[in-house]
């Protein structure tokens, strides 16, 4: 296997790319050696050398603790629990939540053999027991596995003996998406929306 074929094979393993699209991407990189290939190599090398998981929240950053955990302007009393780093980034993108995060590294799944021990639940409990957190937001998916994990976490958090007073546990609302028309929504979303209706 020559070098280009090897690169195509590796690129083809990336999400969203198959063998054909990997070949196109590699050919494009070959054509733009100086403007694209070289900066890409440098960026990949930088990421490989510098980026690591934050020891506190599990976010990916060039520094440990990450920029979010270091930011003293953020509300240290509000903690948002997410399944993956991608979820953290999605919440950061909207810029409304000004608290801190905790990345679990997945959700409970008997099918995939993911139990509480495989997730960052023990570090989460230690963080909360250390004090200073008054609200935990469980921002997990509206799936059976996501909500099973949320209920499991809620049980564990309610069982904590906290010296600093009460802990508020909340979860994200489920329902009609912005721009969504009822006629086009799936039954599950409609059921959730109706159950979580609010008084006007």
């Amino acid at each position: 296997m020559n070098d280009i074929e090897k690169l195509i094979q590796i690129m083809g393993r990336l999400p969203g790319l198959g063998p054909r699209s990997a070949r196109r991407a590699v050919l494009h990189l070959m054509k733009k050696r100086d403007s694209l290939l070289q900066p890409l190599i440098a960026a990949l090398d930088d990421v490989h050398r510098n980026v690591r998981s934050c020891g506190i929240c599990g976010n990916l950053d060039a520094a440990d603790p990450c920029a979010i955990c270091r930011d003293s302007a953020r509300d240290a009393g509000a903690l948002c629990v997410v399944a993956d780093v991608a979820d953290l980034w999605a919440l950061e993108r909207i810029g409304i939540f000004k608290g801190r995060y905790h990345v679990l590294g997945g959700v409970l799944s008997a099918l995939d053999g993911v139990g509480p021990e495989q997730l960052a639940i023990a570090p989460l409990l230690r963080r909360i027991e250390a004090g200073g957190i008054s609200e935990v937001i469980l921002a997990l998916g509206a799936t059976v596995d996501g909500q099973t994990t949320a209920h499991y976490l809620a049980d564990r958090l309610q069982g904590l003996d906290l010296a600093g007073g009460r802990l508020t546990i909340s979860r994200l609302a489920h329902g009609v998406p912005v721009g969504g028309e009822l006629d086009y929504l799936d039954d599950g979303t409609l059921i959730q929306a109706l159950k979580a209706r609010q008084k006007l």
Binding site: T148, H174, D187
Partner: peptide
């Protein structure tokens, strides 16, 4: 045909039983 899971997402006990 019927979205049973959505009816149970809020109920920890029944969701655990379904699982």
């Amino acid at each position: 045909l019927a979205a049973h899971a959505a009816l149970l997402l809020d109920d920890a006990d029944r969701l655990a039983a379904l699982n």
